[in-house]
Design a binder for these strands. Sequence first.
DNA 1: ATGAAAGCGCTAACAA
DNA 2: TTGTTAGCGCTTTCAT
Lengths: 337, 337
Amino acid sequence: MASTLHDVAQLAGVSIKTVSNVINDYPHIRAETRAKVEAAIAELSYQPNPSARSLRSGRTGLIGLAVPELSLSSYFAELADRMIAAAEQRGLTVLIEQTGGDRQRELDVLSGARRKMTDGLLFSALGLQQEDAELLRRPYPLVLLGERIFGGPTDHVTMHNVEAARAGTEFLLGLGRRRIAVVGAHEGEVIGSAGLRLRGYREALDAAGEPFREELVGYALPWHRRDGAEVTRRLIASGARFDALFAFNDNLAFGAMRALQEAHIVIPDDVAVLGFDNLDDAAYSIPSLSTIDPGLPEIVETSIELLVDRIAGRLDQERREIMAAFRIVHRESTPAI
Amino acid sequence: MASTLHDVAQLAGVSIKTVSNVINDYPHIRAETRAKVEAAIAELSYQPNPSARSLRSGRTGLIGLAVPELSLSSYFAELADRMIAAAEQRGLTVLIEQTGGDRQRELDVLSGARRKMTDGLLFSALGLQQEDAELLRRPYPLVLLGERIFGGPTDHVTMHNVEAARAGTEFLLGLGRRRIAVVGAHEGEVIGSAGLRLRGYREALDAAGEPFREELVGYALPWHRRDGAEVTRRLIASGARFDALFAFNDNLAFGAMRALQEAHIVIPDDVAVLGFDNLDDAAYSIPSLSTIDPGLPEIVETSIELLVDRIAGRLDQERREIMAAFRIVHRESTPAI
DNA sequence: ATGAAAGCGCTAACAA
DNA sequence: TTGTTAGCGCTTTCAT
């Protein structure tokens, strides 16, 4: 059997309270006492029982991270990877939950059994909509990620989607490209990554006096490589002419580049391609992908900080909405200036 | 405050034992009693306290999954994605731990604090070596994944690395390719994915009467895209001629294809490329990647089954070693037959 | 600076 | 079929 506080106390010749104090770095302990206790802990290879600890303290040291999926969307794998590391630095453990981007499964995550074993939740929603905002009002610390819901009842970490998409489009216009196709729009969406990025795209066109051409808008859901390839094949087949392509995420862009190359369209000479996410892979595609970097490290650090802050008890203070800074990364899929 | 068994029992007018019985699907309960209890549970939105449950039962319902990383190696993201889903079906929750493939961090995972909050561990090692086998003897259920250690004290799920690499090489030979470069070898490694796959490669060459050419062996560690590209650039720069390239995983292959295309080498006409893993992305690269499918679904199902079996108490029965079946997936990076 | 004791919410052994 | 009770290992409150 594993040893307990009692065993350690007995061996060290102190009470269990003292052992507990040592473990929890309680400051007022005689150096001699501490040494005795630490020796006993080492001798017994004592490790605290987390269930007992949680039962008593009400804290588990676990935080949930709800994402649509880990594979296929490398973005979420990178997010999870960094989040696990950032949580670890703060003594927390991340528990990943996959929703498939499905609204019902996202709701299940919000009220499921796992909420009783985590101290808080980082929630990257894809299926919920603006109308669902009030469903985010929960009795536990919750930080919303992404751009499905704005102005909801929780802390929220997101990015400047409209501005970034606008800047990306202006970047392509600045290269002299006038007919910019879009891959990844969502029919009728206003809020959400697709809706906001399309808005930024339109704003840039308007500002440049370029017409918005419906025939250059490719609708895609979900945003996997496959979808980027399919949509782009359809755009090509439609006969619509375009000299640039703005994909609303890098996966779509990778798929789009495949479709372009199948059609013997040369990147970036015939069509310049711009993605969104700056995945690790973007530097290693062929050609390497110019893309918008949404500042993932900042998003990760900020959202963990907000959550930790709420867990520490500041549950009642005003909600915060943080927008990470973006930048455009210039690689081979767009021509050198 | 959240409600407890007591609250439910009081509201339903029964003892807490009866409520506990209902929750745990104990069969001998009068339908009427059960209905009363369920009504009370619903009214109070009662959810059991997992810490209390774990403290008492000694089970947490959590299992650890140790992998090197979630991003950069899509293989592990796919593994984790599937593992989470497979665990969920069995009422288990996966807790992902990243080791960076570092030996010390892998050892930390084996004895760290999280082992007290999981019922078992799925352990995908990369830094440990055959000599470390005995370190896997642990007082908790442990299933080893991968090919760093064989014949150790635990259950083990792996694949036919030598046979698969041999079959892959024979496949390339069968296409008439004679000078097959390798990307991803590890200097001096015998056991481990790199060592075993190189062995399979050599066996195929030997059987075909082809010489093993040291100058066609590209060493790469780790196995990311970047490394595949760098190694392949070096191979090209060395002046060594080759008409096929066998990358020891798909990421390396993606990087290698980039380097080949940079050098205006046409795939598959000039050089046929074969990968290993059959990542989702392999179907969407340009060109799409022929690769060896290691049977991930089988690996996932098998390893969870073994672990669940051990958790269920069969800790003493003989250790098992399972090898998943592989198959070669033929795509555009190798010429049609 | 350290100890004694209560009790977190649940399951399991036993009783009825 | 249901109730009673002990106790899992820890933190916390209150004493000293």
